[in-house]
Amino acid sequence: MFTSRGPTLRELAVQALSSVERGYDLLAPKFDLTPFRTPDRILDETAEALRPLGPFRDGLDVCCGTGAGGRVLRALCRERAVGVDFSAGMLHEARRAHPGAVLVRADARALPFRPVFDLAVSFGAFGHFLPRERPGLFAQVHSALLPGGVFAFPVGAPPHFGTLPYWAMLGFDTVMRVRNRVWRPGFVMYYRTFPLVEVLAELRRTGFDVELTPLEGLGRRPDGTPRCAVVVARRRA
Results as ranks from 00 to 15, higher is better:
230 V>S: 00
199 V>T: 15
83 G>S: 10
159 P>D: 08
24 Y>G: 07
38 T>A: 08
81 A>L: 08
46 T>E: 10
60 L>T: 00
95 R>A: 15
202 E>D: 14
41 R>Q: 13
140 Q>P: 03
82 V>P: 08
175 V>R: 10
190 Y>G: 11
206 T>W: 04
203 L>E: 06
24 Y>W: 01
12 L>G: 09
167 W>T: 09
205 R>V: 01
40 D>Q: 12
16 A>E: 14
220 R>S: 01
24 Y>E: 01
36 F>Q: 14
217 G>L: 02
29 P>V: 08
220 R>G: 08
139 A>R: 14
229 A>E: 12
162 G>I: 07
191 Y>I: 09
101 A>W: 00
41 R>H: 07
61 D>A: 10
80 R>N: 12
15 Q>K: 12
54 G>R: 04
2 F>Q: 03
72 V>T: 05
68 A>C: 11
74 R>C: 01
162 G>Q: 00
166 Y>S: 09
201 A>F: 04
148 G>P: 01
36 F>L: 15
183 W>Y: 11
149 G>M: 03
201 A>N: 13
11 E>G: 05
187 F>N: 11
168 A>K: 13
46 T>V: 10
170 L>W: 12
230 V>L: 00
170 L>T: 15
153 F>S: 04
107 D>S: 08
159 P>N: 10
202 E>Y: 03
199 V>H: 09
144 A>I: 08
79 E>Q: 14
48 E>A: 12
151 F>K: 05
35 P>S: 03
229 A>L: 12
208 F>H: 06
55 P>L: 08
233 A>W: 02
20 V>M: 12
237 A>N: 12
233 A>S: 05
89 G>W: 02
219 G>R: 09
145 L>F: 07
207 G>V: 03
2 F>E: 05
93 E>K: 13
110 A>M: 07
103 L>N: 06
149 G>W: 05
237 A>Q: 14
43 L>V: 02
129 F>V: 00
187 F>K: 01
21 E>Q: 15
127 G>K: 00
92 H>T: 14
213 T>A: 11
188 V>A: 11
4 S>H: 15
185 P>C: 13
82 V>K: 07
119 L>Q: 02
5 R>P: 11
91 L>E: 00
13 A>T: 15
219 G>T: 09
186 G>C: 11
168 A>V: 13
222 P>H: 01
103 L>S: 07
58 D>T: 10
3 T>P: 06
10 R>I: 15
1 M>P: 07
130 L>N: 05
151 F>A: 05
80 R>D: 11
189 M>N: 14
175 V>K: 04
76 L>Y: 01
91 L>Q: 00
94 A>V: 02
63 C>M: 04
121 V>I: 15
37 R>T: 00
12 L>R: 06
47 A>Y: 02
44 D>P: 04
51 R>H: 07
92 H>L: 13
201 A>I: 10
173 D>E: 05
182 V>R: 02
144 A>T: 11
130 L>M: 14
176 M>F: 12
137 L>Y: 00
163 T>F: 10
234 R>V: 13
199 V>M: 12
80 R>F: 03
218 L>K: 03
19 S>R: 12
47 A>M: 06
131 P>M: 07
145 L>S: 06
140 Q>A: 07
